[in-house]
């Protein structure tokens, strides 16, 4: 499968639009190519604060602090980052903080780098073991709706929700630099 630039842009735009429509005011992230549009938009949006993290577990605490202070926030990361978060997820369960994370997947489709496999193949289980509900978006046209639904579950029902953005959305990574 190949993903064209136009398609990639459309679903990435849908991600940011859903966060914006969901009232998200802080976006904490460890970058990934699949999140680059949302990160760029967050940096430019005067109503949204972007927070670049040194490790994903910081983001679990940042978004919880945002909620404590009355703001909705989301954590953007790659599947490898989910493993970094595991103990910090106990903050969410101990305090029942609403939680929304969007996870771009690696290690599950046309993966060139075997080092992405061990965490990518266990990302969903790791989240579920820590009590987080997992949704998945695999087709570009469903991304906006699923992110929006996850935001509603988090901020209207107080749930902890992750949306996995399938590697098929992101497409094959080009390893040869031109």
């Amino acid at each position: 499968m190949t993903t064209t630039t136009t398609e990639a842009h459309a679903w990435q735009q849908a991600v940011f639009d859903a966060l914006k429509a969901g009232g998200v005011r802080q976006i904490a992230y460890v970058p990934d190519a699949g999140h680059s549009y949302a990160i760029r938009q967050a940096q430019q949006d005067p109503d949204i604060t972007d927070v670049v993290l040194t490790t994903e577990e910081e983001g679990v605490a940042v978004v919880s602090g945002a909620w404590l202070g009355g703001q909705r926030a989301a954590l953007l990361m790659q599947s490898s980052g989910v493993g970094n978060c595991v103990n910090m997820f106990s903050l969410l369960r101990s305090c029942n903080f609403p939680f929304l994370t969007l996870v771009t997947m690696r290690g599950e489709y046309a993966e060139f780098n075997p080092w992405q496999g061990p965490m990518g193949k266990t990302t969903q289980q790791a989240l579920e073991l820590m009590g987080i509900t997992v949704l998945r978006a695999s087709n570009p046209e469903e991304v906006g709706e699923i992110v929006s639904a996850a935001a509603d579950s988090a901020f209207l029902a107080g749930e902890q929700v992750a949306v996995l953005l399938s590697q098929t959305l992101i497409g094959r990574k080009k390893w040869e630099r031109n």
Partner: peptide, 14 residues
Amino acid sequence: GGAVALGLGLALAQ
């Protein structure tokens, strides 16, 4: 390890 990160999210919100 999360105290300062929690305080940061809170400080940005308030």
